[in-house]
């Protein structure tokens, strides 16, 4: 198929640093290949800005193949744009029309403060992980092969599905309450479903939820927006599982 080019208008959030007040700025970009990814389009725009001796737009990106969870853009009112089950780097410009105005904003949440332009600080996710998103394993030379423990196929599959969460934060960005429940529930589920994770399951869910609340994320109201926008299609089933895990831990943990 022959490559097509489109001309687009962009309204992009510009913010000098964490302390300054930002605003939406308008840009015009011509000859964008419909085969290019959204980030390649932004590269093209930045080249244009550099040539005009203007400050290029800062945005997060790394692997550009949908596995690192770095890219994080709120495009036309949706996390990672209008396409489903893709990250921003996997979104193609063929999803947009010639002459279209495209809004690009950073994730909006108190727990994800803007650092610069479209880059937000997602270290709140790291702190939630540090609060319990791990298994304690003895590494003093007598490590046990994880594959030596038999695990049922159903549980293994569900744990794997939860583990596909790349921690991009699209769930928080999409949620009307800026709640991090889908992320936290994926991390809780991934470990709670496996025998190695069951040992610390109670303390894990209590600590991770406590950290989540302290970071200033909102409360889940089951709108389901997170699961729709999630590039890895993490299921709401994980949130239900975390609710069960938390209830169990709340009434029985020492």
């Amino acid at each position: 198929m022959a490559s097509k080019t489109i001309n687009i208008n962009l309204k992009i959030w510009r913010q000098k640093n964490a302390n300054s007040k930002g605003s939406m700025e308008t840009y015009k970009l011509d000859n964008v290949s419909t085969d290019s990814s959204f980030l390649e389009m932004l590269d093209q725009l930045n080249e244009q800005l550099v040539n005009e001796r203007k400050e290029p737009i800062a945005f997060d990106h790394d692997c550009r193949e949908g596995i690192c969870g770095s890219c994080s853009l709120f495009i036309n009112g949706e996390a990672h744009g209008p396409d489903r089950a893709v990250t921003t780097c996997q979104l193609h410009m063929r999803k947009f029309k010639d002459g279209e105005t495209i809004y690009v904003e950073p994730w909006r949440a108190k727990a994800f403060p803007v650092i610069k332009d479209l880059v937000v600080d997602r270290s709140s996710f790291d702190r939630i992980q540090q609060a319990g998103g791990f298994v304690s394993v003895n590494t003093s030379g007598n490590t046990i092969d994880a594959n030596a423990i038999p695990i049922g196929k159903a549980a293994a599959d569900k744990a794997f599905e939860a583990a596909t969460c790349i921690g991009c934060g699209a769930c928080v960005a999409s949620c009307v309450n800026a709640s991090a429940m889908l992320f936290v529930s994926a991390k809780v589920s991934q470990l709670a479903l496996l025998p190695q994770g069951k040992v610390e399951a109670q303390q894990r869910v209590l600590n991770m939820v406590k950290q989540m609340d302290e970071e200033g994320f909102g409360n889940c109201t089951n709108t389901g927006a997170c699961a729709v926008e999630c590039p890895k299609e993490i299921s709401l089933e994980n949130i239900a599982r975390m609710n069960r895990e938390y209830l169990k831990a709340m009434v029985s943990a020492e």
Binding site: G77, S174, V228
Partner: peptide, 10 residues
């Protein structure tokens, strides 16, 4: 958000 298309997901 300046533009939020929340109707697309909930």
């Amino acid at each position: 958000y300046a533009y939020n298309n929340a109707g697309a997901n909930s």
